[in-house]
Design a binder for these strands. Structure first.
Length: 260
DNA sequence: ATGTCTAGAACTTCTAGA
């Protein structure tokens, strides 16, 4: 089962680019971030016509996550537990039922956190603490599960073309990377790096300053697998070429193949 | 070197967020 994460940066602006990629890449499941739409306004038809179930957790203008799936989804829940006051739509979960195994899927859009220091960075770190709690629960279940999405975290210097330019940024500050590492060290497998140690592997290129043309990217979209999911992984790739097309998102899809 | 894009409100131009 081919499962992707893709920050689409606005569903209405990305219908063409997204459906083109779906038709070529034929993913079974897509965890989408930054749909920037309320649930009622999400254009379901292009995806339902292609055989996908559509589950959304949207909000007006900003954020918003969704799951597209060709396989049945069970027990869909919305919102990251741990703060009833949090209004931001950044988390959706569902269990996808394969032919041999089921897998709990968590789609996430981790806060950007800039500027630092300040309330937005505090929110990012608090959100990561809540993420760690949910991560511990997933591991305790000892079942195939993944937490995938736009983490807004550059894990290591080799995950940025110009690491020095990110030194003071919320995506690369030592505190951010330590919080990410704490979650990883609970026992998750970061799917892409488990299979590919090559340099210059990125998932985001800023729209500004010709970042794509200059190869100035960062790798911030990640799929974290529980041991039971990692044992089922047969492939993981980044669909880089998508970034060079018309009306692209600033992110590209990252996907895993799991023998579910 | 900071050169862009999205959505939405107010309105054909601006703002916030990234």
């Amino acid at each position: 089962m081919k499962i992707a994460t893709f920050n689409i940066n606005g569903i209405k602006a990305r219908i063409g680019a997204l459906t083109d990629w779906l038709d070529e890449a034929q993913p079974d499941v897509v965890l989408c971030q930054e749909i920037k739409s309320i649930d009622e306004a999400f254009p379901r038809e292009p995806f339902e016509d292609r055989g996908y179930i559509v589950e959304t957790h949207g909000q007006k203008s900003f954020n918003g996550v969704a799951i597209l799936s060709k396989f049945p989804l069970e027990d869909v829940t919305r919102g990251l537990p741990g703060d009833d006051e949090d209004e931001q739509a950044r988390w959706i979960e569902a269990t996808v039922v394969g032919d041999k195994h089921a897998c709990r899927l968590c789609g996430l859009y981790l806060p950007n956190g800039n500027p630092t220091p300040g309330p937005k960075y505090d929110y990012k770190l608090a959100w990561m603490e809540r993420l760690e709690k949910r991560a511990r629960q997933l591991l305790a279940d000892e079942m195939p599960a993944m937490m995938a999405g736009d983490y807004n975290v550059i894990p290591q210097a080799e995950d940025a073309a110009k690491p020095n330019s990110w030194r003071e940024d919320a995506l690369f500050l030592p505190q951010t990377r330590a919080a990410f590492r704490r979650i990883m060290n609970l026992g998750f497998t970061e799917a892409f790096r488990a299979r590919n140690q090559a340099p210059e592997q990125y998932s985001f290129w800023d729209y500004q300053a010709g970042a794509w043309q200059r190869g100035n990217g960062i790798r911030i979209d990640h799929l974290l697998l529980t041991p039971q999911a990692a044992d089922l992984m047969t492939d993981c790739q980044i669909d880089k070429a998508i970034r060079g097309r018309d009306k692209p998102s600033d992110h590209v899809p990252v996907w895993v193949d799991l023998a579910l």
